[in-house]
Simulated scan of single mutants.
Amino acid sequence: MRARTTTVAALAASLLLGAAAQAQAPQSLRVISPIFGQLVSFAMPSDFVAAFENTKDGHYIREAVLKGETPERWTQMITVTGEKGMTLTPGSSPQIFAGTIAGGFKSACPDSFAARPFGAMTFGRFEGFVAVIGCGRIDSGPTRHSETALLITLKGATGYYTIQWAERGPESDEPPLNDDRWQARLHDLSPIDLCPIMPGEAAPYPSCVNKR
């Protein structure tokens, strides 16, 4: 009888802990931003806040970090970028664009770079490519650390866009590419899509919010 009581108590405690963890999980907010002629739409966890934004010479970037962190000192960052008119570049594709970004990572850590492609995907009606890339050891930031990112590239009507969810951790021989959290984060960012900018429409962009 004592064993049964203990088992029931342990099960009850486990259920309570599971419910508490679920209650503490951050909710997601639909983020829709006009960037170079299209609306970029995705879901962002509510514990992230925008910390930096800039547009210069056909390049757009916005960085969001966890509440309490900064663009200089962060553990996780969600970055959105846009490249104006890039679809006119001969031979361009979401996979090639992802490879260019991966090359930038590799130049920062040639001895500990690794990549894991998830492959070509479609977001709405737009072509994309998804991969996990990272450095096991990198010296940018306050201390040496690993830096790994889920990289999503999208080919828009005239420009290219990326959504990146990066995380810093302890330095290692190679970044944690095979962790299940990268697939989970791709799911957390979904639905990802590009919408047309409708004349006279302002935020919250109902034509994109209600898109099916």
Rank of each mutant, 00 (worst) to 15 (best):
F52W: 04
L17E: 02
I138N: 01
L151A: 02
T148Y: 05
A98C: 01
A20D: 02
L151V: 10
L189N: 07
G68Y: 08
F105W: 09
S93W: 03
Y160T: 09
L15N: 00
E69D: 08
K84F: 11
A203S: 14
P94K: 08
R212C: 03
R73V: 15
C109E: 07
P191G: 09
A108M: 13
L17F: 08
F126Q: 15
D47K: 03
S112W: 04
A203V: 05
Q95S: 11
R168F: 06
Y60K: 10
M77R: 14
L11G: 03
D180A: 15
T5Y: 01
Q38V: 08
F105N: 05
F97H: 05
A23E: 08
G134R: 07
S46Q: 15
K84P: 02
Q95C: 02
L177N: 06
D188E: 12
I197T: 07
T148K: 01
L15H: 01
A166F: 07
T6A: 15
F113K: 01
I61T: 13
G119P: 02
F123C: 00
E83Y: 14
Y160F: 15
P71I: 08
R181M: 13
S107F: 05
R125P: 01
A51W: 02
G104P: 05
C195E: 12
A98I: 05
A25L: 06
E83G: 12
T5H: 03
M44T: 02
G156V: 10
S28Q: 11
P191I: 12
D111L: 07
P206S: 10
L189F: 08
P170H: 11
K67H: 12
V65S: 04
A202R: 13
F36D: 15
T158E: 14
Q76P: 00
S190L: 10
I96Q: 14
T81H: 11
A50H: 13
G200Q: 06
L151F: 06
T81E: 14
P71E: 04
F42N: 09
L39K: 09
R2P: 03
V132P: 06
G156Y: 05
S172M: 09
E174A: 14
S14Q: 08
T122I: 04
R185F: 00
T79Q: 14
L177K: 06
P45R: 14
A98D: 02
A149H: 02
P117I: 09
A102E: 05
I192W: 09
P196H: 06
G156E: 13
T70Y: 06
D111H: 00
